[in-house]
Design a protein around this nucleic acid. Sequence first.
DNA 1: CCTACCGATCGGTAGG
DNA 2: CCTACCGATCGGTAGG
Lengths: 195, 195
Amino acid sequence: MITKTKLNRKQQIIDKATQLFQQQGYAATSMRDLAGYIGIEAASLYSHIKSKEEILQTICFQMANDFFQSLEKIELEKLSADEKLKKAVISHVQVLTKDSAASAVFFSEWRHLSDSYLKDFLAMRNNYENKFIQILIDGHKEGTFKKMDAKFTVLALLSSINWMPSWYKPEGKLTPEEIAENVTDVFINGLKIRS
Amino acid sequence: MITKTKLNRKQQIIDKATQLFQQQGYAATSMRDLAGYIGIEAASLYSHIKSKEEILQTICFQMANDFFQSLEKIELEKLSADEKLKKAVISHVQVLTKDSAASAVFFSEWRHLSDSYLKDFLAMRNNYENKFIQILIDGHKEGTFKKMDAKFTVLALLSSINWMPSWYKPEGKLTPEEIAENVTDVFINGLKIRS
DNA sequence: CCTACCGATCGGTAGG
DNA sequence: CCTACCGATCGGTAGG
């Protein structure tokens, strides 16, 4: 009972913090702000969390894991590079849209992590990007994709997707698949050798 | 003489603030931090600037103006939509790379502007995006570009470019023209109706 | 441009 | 989960 209440409260704190970090930024959000929205005193937050930064760590590494796992599943499949790229983008968009507030925090507040966590975080991000880069390189070897700067293209691709939650509000909501379809249509059809 | 010293000092303050805002974020940068790097006391900053936010305003609206003016010049030219898009992207990348620190602050710290400035800022940004959207719509009317969600595509395009300074460090530095060439090659060749 | 200082607010702890 | 409180730091002003 106590444990269940605690877990719920902890999740409630993290969820509200995610929302506030997204709206105001990590540094500009105070623990008193956060406590006020929850309806308790600031000091009481520390019964559930160790520190302000622990909340940020939870958000960032949860998202990093989600992105990572979704991509690892696709890597194992036997697919051509362009099919793999499309699936990877769909999967990326799915994770992104499942919790767009947490994603926004993940993408723009990670630099406030302390050194050791920052190191791990950047290593994971690099690793993730490299998997995409490999797909493009494979695609070139297979004769499907043009010769290009794969890193440049991957970062352009991921950037164009990642910032969508904060810029693009479609009236009729698009599904992750439709969003991914739009993005990959532009990118893949631009990358494919015209036959 | 006094005036000249003051102007130089003011610019020095803004330049250093730009660098710190980019690295640590606006909220996490203190006036004492900033003063320390300049080599004066925090209180002395206020002989040159009115407030911390004034610095952010200066950075954001300077960049907004630069982007805006560069695009307005191109709008007046008589060009086909795909040529115009390419020129607009080159121009955008030129402004972006001329001061990448200020650009980074412009793109990620604008939300810390107070309400009335924020309103102006968002109006300008919207206006800027609409000019790009119009180019894509014109391109569709001219029969050069596919049917598409123009807003979606513009935001994807601008996002992929805008976040490049923070993600992509080419060993041999690319010129703005080469960067724009890479980006528009992917986008335009993806957008063009294949004949 | 500095010294001296202001009130406000920060993240967090002690003890219950 | 609260009261009471800590030392540190914040943006900024007064007066020279």
